[in-house]
Design a protein around this nucleic acid. Sequence first.
DNA 1: TCAAGCTTGATGCAACTGCATTGACATGCG
DNA 2: CGCATGTCAATGCAGTTGCATCAAGCTTGA
Lengths: 159, 159
Amino acid sequence: MTEKPSQTVVRAWARLMKAQRSALASIEHALKAAGLPPLDWYDVLLEVERAGDNGLRPFELERAMLLAQYNLSRLVDRIERAGYVERRVCEEDGRGQLIVITAAGRAIRRKMWPVYAKAIESAVGQHLTGKEAEALDSLLGKLIEKNTPVDALATARKL
Amino acid sequence: MTEKPSQTVVRAWARLMKAQRSALASIEHALKAAGLPPLDWYDVLLEVERAGDNGLRPFELERAMLLAQYNLSRLVDRIERAGYVERRVCEEDGRGQLIVITAAGRAIRRKMWPVYAKAIESAVGQHLTGKEAEALDSLLGKLIEKNTPVDALATARKL
DNA sequence: TCAAGCTTGATGCAACTGCATTGACATGCG
DNA sequence: CGCATGTCAATGCAGTTGCATCAAGCTTGA
């Protein structure tokens, strides 16, 4: 089942690491330079905003973002302390909670977007034609599909 | 120059993050499960081994790996403490040093490779045909090319 | 109904990262 | 030469992550 990867696959892997690393660094850099919160905050805010007034359970967010449980817990702590989300008790499940975005949260997310978008364009868009972007998107999609994303994290708990 | 990214570019960006994250997690997981050092150690050892007996200057490694200076410095500390590399004084430049791999370093790198290779294959190779892998490799290459990789890190020092 | 086991989320602690700064040397220019 | 400036590498400190564990609530099943 799992044989040795070809040279090409190894190179693609290495480049996946590098491309992501440099793109991420440049985007974090752009956000910081603009005095805005880090990228993760954006993703949380976006998901939570999309979820509407009902909010979102942390474990849902955890899966959506491929983040370890303890990391998400503390990430939400920080965002909450900044006043961008609220934690509410969850009626249906006493263990759980609902994360809801605040007005300030919506505002900061909207403020982050232009900076973020510009950084994406210059880190990714600028280097690719439309067709190339589509091809890249589709190829990366294949990697994600079955790539037991949460598994590496989740299985760790089960062991 | 930097307009708004298209929807496709944004999706590709998001997937780049996700694909890398999940692939990295699964590989780190595999290494840990095998009782081996983390992935970064492998990359350092490989670069240093390739450099031969002359060793490699930290700043060269820094660029090769797209790592921040202080991070590399401490990564090397750890690897050195484990006995896998040595730091030697650099004759040509009194500020600098040369990092040289040890026998133990070579050994552990060789031991890591099969685990690493298998993990790469199952995280990347398995999901792609040969042609797809080539296409992905080439597209990612375009992102890396001009993507001022060190810049986001380096400019920070200059400001 | 109640114990056993699972899921959700938080937290203490150790390791790692980011930032700012420093120390030591190199280089270039008057 | 002698000073200003630049480069190489380390480090103190605060913030973040990973790991292990825990407490609380849900679910199942005898």
